[in-house]
Design a protein around this nucleic acid. Structure first.
Lengths: 116, 116
DNA sequence: TAAAGTAGGAACGGAAAAGTAACTGCCTAT
DNA sequence: ATAGGCAGTTACTTTTCCGTTCCTACTTTA
């Protein structure tokens, strides 16, 4: 029994975006432009290096971000959004608007049982 | 240290959509119209009643779906999308298109290391 | 009379995700 | 000489999720 219906690529893309930090990382890269590893870590408060590395690898593997390593001696690695990343930008933006509207309506408060 | 930056409602909404089945349920409800519990379970192959119940409660709590219970003796419960659910529909639709395009490009295949 | 369907609820258990901490090698600044 | 930053990696531990199984109460059908 496949736990993810394979005919639905939605699931794959959601699996990609799902992690607790993923969209935040994309957001930072889209809002503040390409960033180095350390800067990203500082921009996403509370994330561990482990998670950040993993997410970046994942996003890179999907071609959502690029990675540019300068072979200087303290190696400088910069990450930025690819065109695919920008595809996501629009969706995330829309979703962000919806989220804000919902927040104003109190959806994420504690409990809201008004049968809309 | 808050593990989810609270100023970002995006995270809440993603947390809502994230589950492996959530978007699929919304998809079914948007594609096939309001459905009863059993029908939904049949439409989402492989989901357990536990998961389905939990997701439905969650979505209902967020006002994304409505729940209508008829007090007949084998109780008939029907679920459908609210206006908020339809908000999501558009986003999911866009995301679906992106996902399909990416799939055609082989993003979700095994490995794709072309530095785009 | 027994089985099955309706819409779930409660409990248990394994697996996967995520956080923590320690370590790398090299260089720069103190 | 040593501490700290860069960009991670590895191991360990915890937590959380998710599936499975069993249960409800009632009715209809075989």
């Amino acid at each position: 029994m496949p736990k993810t219906p394979p005919q639905c690529p939605m699931d794959s893309i959601l699996r990609l975006l799902m992690g607790p930090w993923t969209t935040y990382i994309i957001w930072v890269l889209s809002d503040q432009g390409p960033q180095r590893f350390g800067a990203l870590k500082r921009a996403v408060p509370g994330i561990s290096t482990r998670m950040l590395t993993e997410r970046l690898r994942m996003l890179q593997g999907a071609g959502v971000i690029w990675r540019e390593q300068e072979q200087t001696i303290p190696p400088a690695v910069t990450y930025g959004l690819t065109s695919r990343g920008n595809d996501l930008r629009g969706v995330l933006d829309t979703l962000g608007h919806i989220a804000e509207r919902w927040k104003d309506e109190g959806v994420f408060a504690e409990d809201e049982l008004g049968t809309v």
